[in-house]
């Protein structure tokens, strides 16, 4: 082994090590990502939902995305039964609130 190889190896392992310890981006939490339980929105008291409330908007946004994602990314959603239910329900939900 010449000095260049050693240096390169050292540099690379150091880099790898540094990267592993760096600021974790939100995407690193994805492994234990949990799908939002949007079916439950159906059971909420709709008369109390205010559409101009950012909290409501955030929940809607979250569920629209979950629904959309379900269209083409089936393999990674953890619990299947709930997902099917969710797909159906959130569709209705969307129509009601449009």
């Amino acid at each position: 082994m010449n000095i260049k190889t050693i240096t390169a190896t050292l540099a690379l392992t150091t880099l790898a090590f540094t990267l592993s310890a760096q600021a974790h981006s939100p995407s690193e939490h994805m492994q234990d990502a949990e799908a939002p339980n949007c079916a439950a929105m159906e059971t909420m008291d709709h008369s109390k939902m205010k559409m101009d409330d950012p909290m409501m908007q955030a929940m809607m946004k979250q569920c629209m995305q979950a629904m959309h994602e379900g269209d083409h990314d089936d393999s990674e959603t953890p619990d299947e039964p709930e997902k099917h239910e969710k797909d159906g329900d959130t569709n209705n939900f969307k129509h009601k609130h449009k």
């Binding site: 939100p26 939490h29 994805m30 990502a33 799908a35 939002p36 339980n37 929940m59 979250q62 994602e69």
Partner: peptide, 10 residues
């Protein structure tokens, strides 16, 4: 639960 779930799509 809905607000804090990490959506891959997001």
């Amino acid at each position: 639960q809905i607000l804090t779930a990490r959506n891959k799509a997001s």
